[in-house]
Design a protein around this nucleic acid. Structure first.
Length: 190
DNA sequence: AGGATGATTCTCT
DNA sequence: GAGAATCATCCTT
């Protein structure tokens, strides 16, 4: 399976967010590879009050303004990590939040990392999937076309992509920028 | 130097 | 459905 190239990410962000549904996210942080099928994403845009890039570049969000095809990873609520794929032209500050996966490879390691058995709960949230894949801030800014963190295309067609309002955002709630696979059991709640 | 604030998750009831 | 956990980051004194 070949990784998605930079040109995939260097496009209109909501389109990238929609086309990432069905693709595979892989990690190999301690040698052992695990992977999941992306079933839920959200787009964060330039001039979008819900986006971390809204108030300009800072130490935390700098990688969001970097070149398309790298990871923007941040800590939230002191505990959890969340992972984005940076999109659009470099300097624009747009990205796609990966919100949920369906486990495909390395379920046992995911279960160990999550201290949890239920397959549907292993990766069904942005913080959960980072824990399951061993993704931390150490990978912030990493390129998404090579190990230890990479995304590959799935040639299987996704039958039903649902579009909805984003989860957990205070501002910009009205925008329909969340994409999910209706047929997956592994999407996040709400 | 201090305070407010999360693109969340888990554990209750 | 509500509330706590928990801390780096950012903005205001």
């Amino acid at each position: 399976m070949s990784p998605l190239a930079r040109s995939f990410y260097e496009r209109v962000t909501p389109v990238v967010a929609q086309e990432l549904i069905g693709c595979f996210l892989h990690s190999a942080v301690e040698g052992e590879e695990v992977a999941g099928r992306i079933v839920e994403t959200e787009a964060y845009l330039e001039g979008d009050p819900a986006s971390h890039s809204f108030k300009g570049i800072t130490a935390r969000n700098a990688s969001m303004f970097g070149p398309p095809g790298i990871a923007y990873i941040y800590r939230i609520y002191g505990i959890h990590w969340c992972m984005n794929a940076v999109t659009g032209p470099a300097g624009k500050g747009e990205a796609v939040l990966i919100r949920a996966l369906e486990p495909v490879l390395g379920e046992d390691l995911m279960r160990r990392r999550r201290s949890l058995q239920d397959r549907r709960l292993l990766c069904s949230g942005p913080g959960r999937l980072c824990q399951a894949l061993g993704i931390t801030g150490a990978l912030n800014g990493a390129s998404l076309d090579v190990p230890p963190l990479w995304i590959t295309r799935n040639h299987e067609r996704v039958r039903n992509v649902v579009i909805s309002a984003r989860v957990g955002v205070a501002k910009g709630r009205e925008q329909m920028l969340r994409f999910l696979d209706r047929d997956s059991q592994c999407v996040s709640r709400r």
